[in-house]
Amino acid sequence: MLYVKVKTEDGEELVLEVEGMTEDEIREELAKAGFKIEEIEVYEVEP
C-alpha cells in the first residue's frame, strides 16, 4: 500500500492512500480539490 502524508499551508495534516500515482499527479489532484500544499511525504506500507 502506498500512502502520502500531506501538510497544508493552514497546518492541516492528511494521510491519503494512493495507488499508481506519481507525486506530481498527487499534487495536481489535491490542487484541484482546493488544497494548498506545503509538504508531501510518500511512504509504502507492507501488508
Rank of each mutant, 00 (worst) to 15 (best):
I26Y: 01
L16V: 05
G20S: 05
E25K: 05
V4D: 01
T22E: 04
M1V: 13
E44A: 13
E12M: 13
V18Q: 01
M1H: 11
F35H: 03
L16M: 10
T22K: 04
G34K: 02
V4C: 05
V6C: 08
I40W: 08
K36C: 08
F35W: 11
V42S: 04
T22V: 02
E12V: 13
L2T: 07
Y43R: 05
Y43H: 05
T8L: 14
P47M: 09
I37N: 07
A31R: 13
T8F: 13
E46D: 11
I37Q: 09
K32D: 03
E9Q: 12
E13H: 08
E29S: 12
E41Q: 11
E41W: 15
G20W: 12
E12C: 15
E13R: 05
K32F: 06
E39K: 11
L30A: 02
E38Y: 14
E39T: 14
Y3E: 01
E38H: 13
E12N: 10
G34M: 03
K7I: 12
E17P: 07
V42Q: 03
G11E: 02
G20V: 04
E17C: 15
V4T: 01
G34V: 02
K32Y: 06
E41V: 12
P47E: 06
I37D: 07
L2W: 15
K5L: 07
V18P: 00
V6L: 08
M21S: 05
L2M: 12
E19F: 15
E29F: 15
E41H: 11
I37F: 08
E44F: 13
I37K: 06
E38T: 15
V18R: 05
V42A: 04
Y43S: 05
E44V: 13
E17M: 15
E29Y: 15
E46N: 13
D24S: 11
M1W: 14
E9M: 12
E13T: 12
K5W: 14
L14M: 10
V45N: 08
K7Y: 10
M1R: 15
L16H: 01
G34F: 03
L14A: 03
G11M: 02
K7W: 13
V4F: 07
K5R: 10
Y3I: 11
E19Y: 15
A31V: 12
E41C: 14
M21I: 06
E12R: 14
E12D: 08
L2R: 15
E19D: 08
I40Q: 01
Y43E: 02
D24E: 12
L14G: 01
Y3V: 09
K7H: 08
D10V: 04
E17L: 15
D24G: 08
D24F: 11
K7V: 10
T8Q: 04
E28R: 13
E39L: 12
E25I: 04
E23V: 14
E25Y: 04
E28Q: 11
R27Q: 03
E39Y: 14
E23R: 11
K32W: 06
K7S: 05
E17H: 14
E39G: 09
T8P: 02
V15L: 12
A33P: 01
E19A: 11
K32I: 06
F35E: 00
P47L: 09
E29H: 13
K36Y: 05
K7D: 02
G20Y: 09
K7G: 03
E46V: 11
E25N: 04
P47R: 07
E29C: 15
V15C: 15
T8D: 04
L2Q: 07
V45R: 14
K36Q: 06
E12F: 14
A31Q: 11
E17W: 15
I26W: 07
E41P: 01
V4S: 00
E12L: 14
L16G: 01
R27E: 03
I37W: 10
V6A: 04
V15H: 07
E39R: 10
E23P: 11
K36M: 07
I26T: 01
E13L: 11
I40F: 10
E44I: 13
V45A: 10
A33D: 02
I37V: 10
E28A: 13
